[in-house]
Amino acid sequence: MNIEVENLCKKFEDFSLEDISIKVPKGKIVGLIGENGAGKTTLIKCILDVMHKDSGKVLLFDKDYKGKLKEDIGCVFDDSFMNQTFNVKDIDLIMRNIYKNWSSKKFFKFMKDYDIPLKKEIKKLSTGMLKKLEIAVALSHNPKVLILDEPTSGLDPIIRSEILDMFQNFVENKENSVLLSTHITSDLEHIADDVIFISKGKIIFDKPLKDIKEQYTVIELTHDEFAKFDKKAIIKYKKNRLDYQVLIAKKDKNKYTKYIKNITTLDDIMLLYIKGEDV
């Protein structure tokens, strides 16, 4: 196991992460989804010891957490990077004195591939270029794990697709893994092996993506149809102005085929879990 979190708790005045246990196995991409403020960033910061946990255990590469183990971890934060008055050459100079495995050759190849100018201050780079730079920095010290907090937010679909391809290539050796937090769940539909859904500091589910797709379906019912619908089959529902969105177990799918209007996405499931009501 590359990352293992056991019963992690972190309390704030108005929010808490409660009893979080997750695993990031070798060779897998694990997606962390949830609404803004669900606790994704807090969990990532606790894993990296950027925040102190109140209780629980974090194991990296099956060992108790220690600073040096971060040598094998590449990080991208949503809102934190280096001093933006630096340029690419400065970053290379700093990083080769921080990471033992830093490869300037690999780093500059990324820069060439991404057309990132070497002498331009990073605050003058576009959002997409900056994000690519952050990912290149995370990859250039040959880590075994990538921990990424919203790495694709604010990026156009083409750049997002390129970046997601990089993550897929990264885990191809079956040893590396990726923990990817995002609220753009469509990113995960194509690349994630497992999905962890956090809401209000608690894990709602932690399942292989394949199972999620096999277990849940969202159907749409008119108000009359909803009134007559077998309520026992409903996991969650959301009342809209014109219809009801209803989350049901996929085993019941055949009974309700006529109500399936669209392919169920992670977004639909997440929305219904967060905003939906119990029967």
Partner: peptide, 18 residues
């Protein structure tokens, strides 16, 4: 500057102890 560019969290992700 570190505070302005919010780079403290990033610094703590390096393989260095506090």
């Amino acid at each position: 500057t570190d505070e302005f560019y919010n780079s403290d969290a990033y610094t703590l992700s390096y393989p260095l102890s506090r």
